[in-house]
Amino acid sequence: MRHLFQNPVLRWLMRNPIWGFVLIVFIFFSLSSDHFFDARNFQNILVQTSTIGLIALGMTLVMINGNIDLSVGATLALAAAFAVDVQSWAMFATWGNWQILPAVCLALLVGIAMGAINGFIVWKTGVDAFIVTLGAMLGIRGLVFVYTGEQSFYAMNFAYSDFSAFSVGPLPVLALIFLLCVLAVHWLLSRTVHGRNTYAVGGNREAAVNAGIRVGPHMMINFMIIGFLAALSGVLLSTQMGAATPNLGRDYELWVITAVVLGGTKLTGGKGDIIGTLGGVLAIGILRNGMNLMQVPAFYVYVILGSILIAVLFLDKRFNTSTDGGLRL
């Protein structure tokens, strides 16, 4: 523990206050619940976090771009419906366990396609992403209902619903997939040209345009990435449930945005990173898990999360107001 208190760590915590919060709730629940500090529970937290977490990775990109995507919950449901339904199509009947493969691929493609539609509309029409994806949120949910006819689909292939029970070493496979995606998106954002341009587009759109970054296609790619991640999240969620319900993923967009904002990403764009977002989703995950273990009714989580979100905004404002130079506007 000694190295924790050396300066670089403290300085790092100052820049990523959400991790300080994660640490505090972690210690708090470790002390106050007997069941919290337990390897099996940690696995639970990671699995529970992965659903929101995967989407939050994509949302980080989209929000750094200065956009937002409200349609992710619906996309998740659509992908889950495809993943569960397609494997029972007659044409794959003889494929055995391989029938899962086209189903999952199609589901992921559907997710990418939904993102592409959003991105393309934002690019070509110049309508604000908030409005475009608000429309898509209703519309894609409509697609889910059209496709499912308001029915839930159940996975007939047990290999599908068993998937989520696998572990690789100590890590449940769902957690592993999530962590791999965290690494991949972190790499994308911090190491690649596309990732760096993501900051440029969100930080100073005009400068990015002038520097020859093709802002439209760039934003479309990020919408496709979040579509893919939402679909992946939907597939994984449906393996956990062994089913896909038409109302799956409702309100997820709110949780995801909460997590990303907690992680320090700015709504106005140009600022944020995956480390912060990971902290944001873990904070929510640990809070929900811990309060569940302490048998606090789930209702309180809503109140606490809402309050934390507003508090973070307030503190951020308090500590980062140097721009107006004392002008009383």
């Binding site: 989580v301 109140v303 809402g306 905004l313």
Partner: peptide, 23 residues
């Protein structure tokens, strides 16, 4: 009064009020 971002504040309030109702 505090000039916080309305999208985030009302998002937080959405969650908090839903919790209040349930409680």
């Amino acid at each position: 009064i505090l000039r916080l971002n309305s999208l985030i504040v009302t998002l937080g309030m959405l969650s908090a009020i839903q919790g209040l109702v349930l409680i």
